[in-house]
Simulated assay, not measured.
Amino acid sequence: MEQQLVELLMYSIPALITGIIAYFFFREHIKNENNRRLFLMQKDLKKEALPMRLQAYERMTLFLERIVPSKLLIRVAPLSSDKNDYEKLLIDNIEQEFEHNLSQQIYLTSDCWSIIVAAKNTTIQLIRKANMSEKTDTANKLREVILTEMMENQAPSSTALAYIKEEITTIW
């Protein structure tokens, strides 16, 4: 009986060791295969997402260029001489342009999006501040005050544009 137990152990122990080694080998192999598949899938997703991200940066660059006050004033002429109507028209134009590009935020980093929103809000505040100026009594005067402000200071969107350019370099 003792002899049979020794024989049983002589066959069982090598089989058990082989089974354990095979288990760990296949577990590592499966883990490596899953990691490889995940890497390839992410690589393909990045390849497909990169053009969309670049397009989002392009669209937001265009938005920021369009809300530069000097360019905005050239593009959007006053409909009447009322300064409040013109202020509303300018702000509505900025908001409409922004809403048109609202979906682009999913392709941008949250920092970049925050800077773009801040540039938009600062531009609107600049227009409102110019409208409240004592010098402003007509729509054309409002245009002059805003243009004078732009000659003295940098447009709010220029900071956001610089940030976008910097962020694009990290993508490459």
Rank of each mutant, 00 (worst) to 15 (best):
Q42F: 07
E58H: 14
R36I: 06
N84V: 12
P78C: 06
F26W: 04
I67P: 01
Y23D: 06
L40C: 14
F63A: 04
I94K: 02
A49R: 10
A49L: 11
R53S: 06
L72T: 01
N84Q: 15
L40F: 15
A15N: 04
N84R: 14
Y23F: 10
Q42D: 08
V76L: 03
L16T: 01
I21K: 05
L90D: 07
S80I: 05
I91C: 10
E33M: 07
E28M: 05
K43E: 15
M52K: 13
S70T: 07
L45A: 13
A56L: 08
I94L: 04
A77D: 14
K88P: 13
P51E: 10
P69F: 07
L73T: 00
I21Q: 03
R36Q: 00
R75W: 11
L64C: 02
Q96Y: 13
S81Y: 09
L62F: 14
D44T: 14
I74Y: 08
N35M: 12
I74L: 12
R36F: 02
E33F: 03
L90Y: 04
F25E: 04
F24E: 03
K88C: 13
K88W: 15
Y57S: 05
I67M: 02
N34G: 06
K43D: 13
T18P: 03
T61P: 02
F98N: 10
E48A: 15
F24G: 06
F63E: 02
K88Q: 15
Y57N: 03
L90E: 04
P69T: 01
A77Q: 15
K31Y: 09
K83P: 03
L64S: 03
E28I: 01
R37V: 14
N84A: 13
Y86A: 08
P78I: 09
I17T: 01
P51L: 09
T61D: 00
K43Y: 14
S80R: 01
S70V: 09
S81V: 04
M41V: 14
S80H: 08
P69N: 04
L16Q: 08
H29S: 11
L50D: 05
Y23L: 08
E87F: 11
N34M: 11
M60E: 03
L50A: 06
F98T: 10
E48D: 12
P69A: 06
I17Q: 02
R59S: 03
L54G: 00
L79P: 02
M41S: 15
A22T: 04
M52Y: 12
A49C: 07
L54Q: 01
L62S: 14
L62G: 14
R27H: 10
E87K: 15
